[in-house]
Design a protein around this nucleic acid. Structure first.
Lengths: 223, 223
DNA sequence: ACCTGAACACCGTTCAAGT
DNA sequence: ACCTGAACACCGTTCAAGT
C-alpha cells in the first residue's frame, strides 16, 4: 500500500498533520500566540474545528509539534564540526535566533519539560561537552546548566516580545524600562539605578551570548 | 481617617486586594494553577466574580501580585551578610525552594518580563556581584546570566511539577523518563542514552546548584 | 475513514442593577 | 463606594450526523 500514495496528489483539500502544523506556524508567526485557535486554524483550512482532532490529539500536541519543527532545524543547522565549545555557542545562538524569529517557541519551550525539542538541544550540547572532555560525572550537570540558561533567556525574551506585538521602537521601549527602574527607591534598588543609565546601548543577543560564555568559562575550569 | 481603620474589624466580609492575593495563593498551592479562576476565587470569598475587579485590574495583575509576595519573602530571607558569592548561592536556592513549594511561581516568573519579583532578584544578585568586585562593564551581563539560569530551571521545574499534580512517586517518574530516552534511536541520541542509565540518583536541587556554581566559576574567571 | 459544525462546559471580563 | 450575578464574547473539546 505505501507505494500507492502519490506526493503529487497534494490538492488543496486533504488535511494532514503536517499541513496542520505548517498552518499553525504561519498563524503563530504572523498573528501571535493568542491568534492560534482551533477555530482560526480550521477557518484558514476551510473546515470545522472538529476536523483537526482527526490528525492531532490536542492543542498542546499541535504546539509541541510546531516547536519541534522550528527547534530541530535550528539545532541541525548549527551542528557543525569544529571546536566543540564553539559548536555549543553556535547551538545556543541558533536557538536564540529561532526564538527571535518565532517568539512563541520561547513560551512553548518553557511550558513542557522533556519535550522532543529540548531533548534534541540537550543531545547536541551533550555530545559537544563530551567531545571537549568534560568528565563523565560533571557532564549531565554542565549540559543542564547550559540548556537552562538558554531556556531562561528564551522565556524572558519571548515574554518581552509578547508585550510588544508589532515592531515597536526598541530604543523607546528600553527608555521606558529605564524610566521605571529610575522610579524605584534608590536606597532599595541601587543596582537597578546604576544599570538604568547604560540601558540605551543594550543588546539582548550580545547579553545572551555573554551569559553562555560565562557558563562555558565555568565549564573550562573543570578541565 | 487612617487612624479610624481597626485591624480587629476584619470580619469575614470586607474584600481587599491583600485578601484576594492571599486566597489566590491558597488556591494555587492546594489545587494547582488551573484551579484559580475568578469564579472559584469569588466562590471561596462568597461573592460574585465581578467583585474582584474592584480591587484588582485583571487576572494577570493578581498573579503578578501573588508571585511578588512569594518571591519577595524568599529573596529577603536570603539576603544575609557574608561572602558575596555565598549570598548569591543562597539567593538562588531560596528562589528554587520557593518554586518547589509553589510551582505556579515558576510559570509566572517566566511569563512576564521585568515584573517586580524579577527586579528584586536582579537587584539582590547585582549588589552581591558588585560587592564581590565584578568589573562594572561585565556586571549587567553576569547578573543576567545568573538570573536567566535561575529562571530557566524554574520554568523547567514548574513544568515538570505541573505534569504530576499530586505527590507522585519520584523514582517511578524518573524511571519513566529514562525509559523514554532509551527508546530513542541510540545512533541519533548517544548522549541521552548515556545519561539515562544514571538518572535514578538524580536530584533536581543538586543539579540546579551545580548549574549556579558553574556560572559562579565563570564569574570568578573575570576577577 | 474523514469531515462537519452545532453543542457542551468552561473561561475572563463587563455592566446594569442593587445596597 | 462596593458588591452582585447575569450576560457577552470567547475558548478547547466532543459527538451525532453526514459523505
Amino acid at each position: 500500500m505505501p507505494s500507492v500514495e502519490s506526493r503529487a496528489t497534494r490538492r488543496t483539500d486533504p488535511l494532514s498533520r503536517d499541513r496542520l502544523v505548517q498552518t499553525a506556524i504561519e498563524i503563530l508567526d504572523t498573528d501571535g500566540e493568542d491568534a492560534l485557535t482551533f477555530r482560526s486554524l480550521a477557518a484558514r483550512l476551510t473546515t470545522g474545528p472538529g476536523a483537526i482532532y482527526h490528525h492531532v490529539a490536542s492543542k498542546s500536541e499541535l504546539l509541541r509539534a510546531a516547536t519541534t519543527v522550528v527547534v530541530s532545524s535550528a539545532v541541525d543547522g548549527a551542528r557543525t564540526p569544529g571546536e566543540p565549545l564553539d559548536t555549543v555557542r553556535a547551538l545556543a545562538l541558533a536557538v536564540f535566533d529561532a526564538i527571535d524569529a518565532h517568539p512563541w517557541v520561547g513560551t512553548q519551550l518553557t511550558r513542557e519539560p522533556w519535550q522532543l525539542a529540548v531533548v534534541q538541544l540537550f543531545e547536541a550540547v551533550g555530545v559537544c561537552l563530551q567531545e571537549y572532555g568534560v568528565p563523565k560525572h560533571a557532564r549531565f550537570d554542565a549540559v543542564s546548566a547550559l540548556v537552562n540558561c538558554v531556556l531562561g533567556s528564551a522565556g524572558q525574551y519571548a515574554a518581552a516580545a509578547r508585550l510588544l506585538p508589532r515592531d515597536t521602537d526598541r530604543a523607546l521601549v528600553l527608555r521606558g524600562i529605564a524610566r521605571e527602574w529610575e522610579r524605584l527607591d534608590p536606597s532599595d534598588f541601587p543596582f537597578m539605578h546604576a544599570i538604568a543609565a547604560g540601558l540605551d546601548e543594550h543588546d539582548d543577543r550580545e547579553q545572551f551570548l555573554a551569559g553562555v560564555d560565562l557558563v562555558l568559562a565555568g565549564i573550562r575550569t573543570i578541565r
